[in-house]
C-alpha cells in the first residue's frame, strides 16, 4: 500500500522514511521492535493527514465504523463496511 501511494506521487520515499523513523523512535515504543506494525500504521496515517489526503476525524470515524461492522457480521462471512448498523 505504501509503495503504491509513493508511486502515485502522494509522498516521496524520504518523507515516508522520515515519518516511519519518527514513530519508531517515539518514547514508549517497545525496545524489541514488536510494535513495528503499529509504527507503520501510525506513520502512514500521520503522513496522509499531513498531506491533506485524509483528516484524522474521518480516519477515526471509519475505524470505529469498521469495528462495528466486524461485530455485526456473522462469523464466517466477509466483513463489509456496509454491515455497520450505524452507517
Amino acid at each position: 500500500m505504501t509503495v503504491h501511494l509513493h508511486e502515485k506521487g502522494v509522498f516521496t520515499w524520504n518523507e515516508w522514511a522520515e515519518a516511519l523513523s519518527v514513530e519508531v523512535h517515539k518514547p514508549g515504543r517497545a525496545e524489541d521492535g514488536s510494535d513495528y506494525f503499529d509504527c507503520w500504521v501510525a506513520a502512514l496515517s500521520g503522513l496522509l493527514v499531513a498531506k491533506g489526503v485524509a483528516d484524522a476525524d474521518t480516519i477515526l470515524a471509519l475505524q470505529q465504523s469498521w469495528q462495528r461492522a466486524a461485530e455485526a457480521t456473522p462469523h464466517g462471512q466477509r466483513i463489509l463496511l456496509e454491515n455497520d448498523p450505524l452507517r
Binding site: 503499529d38 500504521v41 496515517s45 485524509a54 475505524q63 469498521w66 469495528q67
Partner: peptide, 17 residues
Amino acid sequence: NRYSDMQARVRALETVL
C-alpha cells in the same frame, strides 16, 4: 468477529484511499 484498533485502522486507511 472483532477488529482490534490496529486492524480497523488499516481497513479505514484502505477505505479512505
